[in-house]
Amino acid sequence: MHSVEPTGRKPRRVLSTRNIILYGFLIVAALYWLLPLYVMIVTSLKGMPEIRLGNVFSPPVEVTFAPWVKAWDSACTGLYCEGLKVGFWNSVQILIPSVIVSIAIASVNGYALSFWRFKGSEFFFTVLLFGAFIPYQIMIYPLVIILRELHLFSTLWAVIIVHTIFGMPILTLLFRNYFASVPAELFKAARVDGAGFWRIFLQIMLPMSLPIFVVAIILQVTGIWNDFLFGVIYAGTRNFPMTVQLNNIVNSSQGVKEYNVNMAATLLTGLLPLVVYFISGKLFVRGIAAGAVKG
């Protein structure tokens, strides 16, 4: 008999069956996702002779950054052999205005829809939401015609407009739900204090909605950066974004397949979203939750 009166904190076994299964599963899942990344990184640091040996998982014997330099500076993307850097700057030029314009419009939309109910505002919102469920493919050709008539086809602005349009439903929903969780009395108080539509938005609502702006920025930055379809259709050859250039490098059918250059190019293209996620992971989850609770 060694019956001990239970007292204080309940003891927890670290190596319980439950924990072993839980952590075992988590570790396997993590390996499954990390392994391809590992292969890509080591391959991009090897020279071609070493790659031909076929040891995909072995670390590079002789580390070389030449594939990275080539991918950035001189890999051939179709007719031009200027590397990914052209695509990178095109992507930046597409990204910045698209993100700013789409978020600016969507945040005002969401704010107006949750605080300034007007006749037909519910209908307007429904139509906007419906837009989120229509397949992109249906709208591609009509947009080509519209942009042609506006003499914008094959320009940077064409892609920016298209990204703004397609970001609108989901972003508006995001902002509307966030603002719906802001107490209505705050809005009333500001009205009694004599603030109008824009003053309430800029001075009261904007400073309160940093988390949801972070979410919107992440969604848009990664979405637009990773876009291939709109870039290849609307931007025109000289304005192809990085993803399109990457495809041209990797899928070029001439010469030897330079796996190391391809891997480096892919990593370069994926670098920005990766960095964004790492920096903002915490904020992202917080913001998503903030918008999701009510609405």
Binding site: P183, E185, A189, A190, R191, V192
Partner: peptide, 17 residues
Amino acid sequence: EPKDRGIGMVFQSYALY
């Protein structure tokens, strides 16, 4: 408009900015 009515208002949830 509320601001032109010569009123001040206090809310249940305080509604401070």
